[in-house]
Design a binder for these strands. Structure first.
Lengths: 189, 189
DNA sequence: CCTAAACCTTGACATACATCAAGGGTCAGG
DNA sequence: CCTGACCCTTGATGTATGTCAAGGTTTAGG
């Protein structure tokens, strides 16, 4: 399990392998059940997670009680609630694993140590942050610029696995439409 | 003009003023006319801007040719197209000043030098990035969770200056609705 | 293995919002 | 001071999508 992360890091750090084992030692493997929560809105996010298997849903709940899924993170990527993690403040979003998943978690204190002692790790953090930001930007532009049919087509083109692996409910909340609309559009496209 | 930035930086850096003048020297003051472009989609974003007076619209254009305004940045805040700036790749969004504005610009090379020579500057960059990210996250959750009326009310509560200072067209594109709908809602609320 | 719950799909209906169009106001440039 | 361009506003109309409801299927837990 840790091997996946080792590979991920060496891909990024290149030959700078001296601190690699030090870094890896700080990650704790964990397994989650279907629909397990990693973080509930209002709690402080105390970890950054690397997804080894499964996926993580990042979502909030609006005034009407509907789930708003901002992101779904799959194998080989990082996820956290950075807004909360960065300053250890209550989170505005929740994290959940829609599938049974394997994760590697690093705690806030350990993360801080890594940032200070391994400069490359700070660089990786910047990359994670920038990627997350780009993703959010992309979502704003996509959501505002497309109607429901275009969003489904977009998903089909860019993340077809989401449509097959996850429930319609979840996919719909990710696209910002109702499950009924998604059903109807799937048959039309 | 540079005084505004000096103040902004000392507020953040605290007593660490030794490199302050070095940093400030790298910023070039500039004035823009109404609706001037700082960056066009497809070009590489070569600067980070600090807004001294006026504001900057961050937007993309969808398939139908409509402007999608992702952000509007006012006095005392930073703006750039970080996705493009960070890796010097073509931008997916444009930057424009809807009002005549005063800005302080720092170029990519100078920015890089600052990051290396002044550690506090790297920290400020992380703050800018995190703020931008949080903002984008907030927008996704807001847009997907609210109908048109709620979005107008939200703007009224959180950024009333936007409604008064800027054109209805621009505000509507920021809220993800048409100018007509905005007009009708304003009279109802 | 059985049962209840959750989910997907389909239909009928409601409605929020977009689109199209026209009139009047405002502003900038000649 | 005019004139045209642009924008805001209002109305009439269309339509995409949400809401509500019901039946059939799958899923999860005892």
């Amino acid at each position: 399990m840790i091997q996946v992360l080792r590979q991920h890091l060496t891909d990024r750090l290149g030959s700078q392998t001296e601190h690699l084992d030090t870094v890896l030692a700080y990650f704790e493997p964990m397994e989650t059940r279907r629909n397990a929560f990693l973080l509930q809105t209002g709690d402080v996010c105390r970890h950054v997670y690397f997804v080894v298997r499964g996926c993580v849903q990042v979502f909030s709940v609006n005034a009407a009680g509907d789930e708003i899924t901002r992101d779904i993170v799959f194998e080989g990527a990082w996820v956290s609630q950075l807004e909360s993690f960065g300053q250890q403040l209550p989170a505005t979003e929740s994290l959940r694993t829609p599938e049974p998943s394997q994760l590697l978690a690093i705690s806030y204190p350990h993360f801080g140590q890594m940032m200070q002692t391994v400069p490359q790790f700070a660089e990786i953090y910047r990359q994670i942050l920038l990627l997350s930001f780009n993703n959010a930007v992309y979502r704003v532009n996509t959501l505002m610029g497309m109607d429901a049919a275009d969003r489904v087509r977009w998903l089909l083109d860019h993340q077809p696995n989401i449509l097959t692996r996850l429930s319609s409910r979840l996919v719909a909340s990710y696209l910002g439409i109702t499950p009924e609309t998604l059903t109807r559009l799937k048959s039309k496209i």
